[in-house]
Deep mutational scan, measured.
Amino acid sequence: TYTFKVDNKDQAKKAAKWAKKLGLSFQIEKHGDTFKITVQ
């Protein structure tokens, strides 16, 4: 499981695209202005 934080929606979208490309499941949680992405 890999967790990282991004500062904006664009970065969150890029991370989601990357995870989908690799066939991984992911969750994006919004914490105020940051997004926490968990990829597994």
Score class of each variant (00 low, 15 high):
residue 36 K to G: 03
residue 34 T to D: 06
residue 11 Q to Y: 05
residue 23 G to S: 04
residue 6 V to H: 02
residue 3 T to D: 04
residue 8 N to K: 05
residue 1 T to C: 15
residue 22 L to I: 05
residue 29 E to Q: 09
residue 4 F to T: 02
residue 23 G to V: 02
residue 37 I to P: 00
residue 32 G to F: 05
residue 36 K to Q: 13
residue 21 K to Q: 09
residue 7 D to Y: 14
residue 17 K to H: 09
residue 1 T to M: 11
residue 37 I to T: 00
residue 11 Q to H: 08
residue 8 N to T: 14
residue 31 H to I: 14
residue 16 A to G: 06
residue 18 W to I: 05
residue 30 K to H: 06
residue 24 L to V: 04
residue 10 D to I: 13
residue 35 F to D: 00
residue 22 L to T: 04
residue 36 K to L: 15
residue 37 I to S: 00
residue 28 I to Y: 04
residue 40 Q to V: 11
residue 25 S to I: 11
residue 35 F to C: 06
residue 6 V to F: 10
residue 20 K to F: 08
residue 18 W to F: 04
residue 12 A to T: 03
residue 34 T to Y: 15
residue 28 I to D: 00
residue 39 V to H: 01
residue 38 T to D: 02
residue 28 I to S: 03
residue 26 F to V: 12
residue 27 Q to G: 04
residue 15 A to Q: 02
residue 2 Y to E: 02
residue 19 A to V: 04
residue 36 K to M: 15
residue 19 A to W: 03
residue 11 Q to M: 11
residue 36 K to V: 15
residue 40 Q to Y: 15
residue 27 Q to I: 13
residue 5 K to D: 10
residue 38 T to S: 06
residue 23 G to T: 02
residue 4 F to R: 01
residue 19 A to T: 01
residue 29 E to D: 07
residue 12 A to I: 07
residue 7 D to N: 13
residue 20 K to G: 04
residue 12 A to M: 09
residue 34 T to W: 14
residue 2 Y to L: 09
residue 1 T to H: 10
residue 10 D to G: 11
residue 35 F to R: 01
residue 32 G to K: 06
residue 3 T to F: 09
residue 39 V to W: 05
residue 12 A to F: 04
residue 25 S to K: 12
residue 27 Q to K: 13
residue 27 Q to Y: 13
residue 16 A to E: 08
residue 34 T to Q: 14
residue 16 A to V: 12
residue 22 L to P: 00
residue 7 D to R: 14
residue 17 K to W: 11
residue 24 L to D: 00
residue 33 D to P: 08
residue 13 K to S: 08
residue 6 V to I: 06
residue 25 S to Y: 09
residue 25 S to L: 11
residue 33 D to Y: 06
residue 18 W to A: 03
residue 9 K to G: 06
residue 27 Q to S: 13
residue 16 A to P: 00
residue 1 T to W: 13
residue 15 A to L: 14
residue 6 V to P: 01
residue 1 T to L: 09
residue 11 Q to I: 07
residue 3 T to N: 04
residue 19 A to Q: 01
residue 11 Q to C: 15
residue 33 D to G: 09
residue 12 A to K: 03
residue 17 K to F: 09
residue 24 L to M: 08
residue 31 H to A: 11
residue 11 Q to G: 07
residue 23 G to Y: 03
residue 32 G to T: 03
residue 23 G to Q: 04
residue 8 N to W: 03
residue 11 Q to K: 11
residue 23 G to N: 07
residue 15 A to H: 04
residue 29 E to T: 12
residue 13 K to N: 09
residue 21 K to A: 11
residue 19 A to F: 14
residue 21 K to H: 08
residue 9 K to P: 10
residue 3 T to L: 04
